Simulated scan of single mutants.
Amino acid sequence: MAAPLDLAGSGLVTLAPAAGPGLAVRACLVVALLVAASAVWWVARRRAARFRSLPSGLAGAAGLTSADLGHELGARATFVQFSAATCSTCPQVSRALTELAAGEPGVVHVNLASEDHMDLVRRFSVYRTPTVLVVDAVGTVRSRTSGPLTPARAVAALRHVTHGPPKIADSPRSIDV
């Protein structure tokens, strides 16, 4: 234990060790960790709720059939939602996609319990719920998103699948409004 320090003859005594260069190093490390954590959080928030095209290696092999889903594919598109019993945002996403499918002819929404479809969860690398895949009429997965979803972003993803990408796109990997 460090010896008590007399603070400049004031009669006050402290038992804390003297602050030296080690304190400055530790403070810099804490600041660096906070900056790194903030950067990771910012990147994760930017990616959340945005439909992204699948990587080229996964896109070709990532087809879905009616047998995989236990439901017929939509004539135009199918939104395949992976949900979990403990997911707090899954009901909101399900409502938004159900309303969109009801208002768009040829569009179907299929809600799958992740726990019951582990083969598909592994096949499509579903790491969080809700994860939504947008499937075209022939079963090709065209894009995906994870996390909370707004109806406007779902409509934009549907337009991307049914009408092709817009002529001028901000980003070829993200469908955003």
Results as ranks from 00 to 15, higher is better:
Ala2Asp: 15
Ala3Asn: 09
Ala3His: 05
Ala3Pro: 06
Ala3Lys: 15
Pro4Thr: 13
Leu7Thr: 01
Leu7Ile: 09
Leu7Asp: 00
Ala8Cys: 12
Ala8Glu: 09
Val13Leu: 12
Leu15Phe: 15
Ala18Tyr: 10
Ala19Leu: 07
Gly20Leu: 02
Pro21Lys: 11
Val25Glu: 11
Arg26Thr: 14
Cys28Arg: 08
Leu29Ile: 07
Leu34Asn: 07
Leu34His: 03
Val35Ile: 11
Ser38Tyr: 03
Ala39Tyr: 03
Val43Trp: 12
Ala44Val: 05
Arg46Thr: 08
Ala48Cys: 08
Ala49Pro: 07
Arg50Trp: 01
Arg52Asn: 03
Ser56Thr: 07
Gly57Ala: 04
Leu58Cys: 08
Ala62Trp: 01
Gly63Gln: 09
Ala67Gln: 05
Asp68Glu: 04
Gly70Gln: 01
Leu73Val: 06
Gly74Gln: 11
Val80Glu: 12
Phe82Val: 03
Ser83Glu: 10
Thr86Arg: 12
Ser88Lys: 13
Ser88Asn: 10
Cys90Leu: 07
Cys90Val: 06
Pro91Asp: 05
Gln92Phe: 08
Val93Ile: 02
Ser94Ile: 04
Ala96Tyr: 01
Ala96Asn: 08
Ala96Ser: 07
Thr98Arg: 15
Thr98Pro: 01
Glu99Tyr: 06
Gly103Glu: 07
Gly103Val: 08
Pro105Cys: 05
Val107Pro: 05
Val108Arg: 14
Val110Tyr: 13
Asn111Cys: 10
Asn111Gln: 13
His117Arg: 14
Met118Ile: 14
Leu120Met: 12
Arg122His: 13
Arg123Ser: 12
Phe124Pro: 01
Tyr127Asn: 12
Thr129Asp: 01
Pro130Thr: 00
Thr131Leu: 02
Val132Gly: 02
Val132Ser: 02
Val135Asn: 06
Val138Glu: 10
Gly139Lys: 02
Arg142Val: 02
Ser146Leu: 00
Gly147Tyr: 00
Gly147Glu: 00
Arg153Asn: 15
Ala156Trp: 03
Ala157Ser: 13
Val161Leu: 04
His163Val: 08
Gly164Asp: 00
Pro165Trp: 02
Ile168Trp: 09
Ala169Asp: 05
Pro172Gln: 04
Ser174Leu: 11
Ile175Arg: 06
Asp176Cys: 09
Val177His: 06
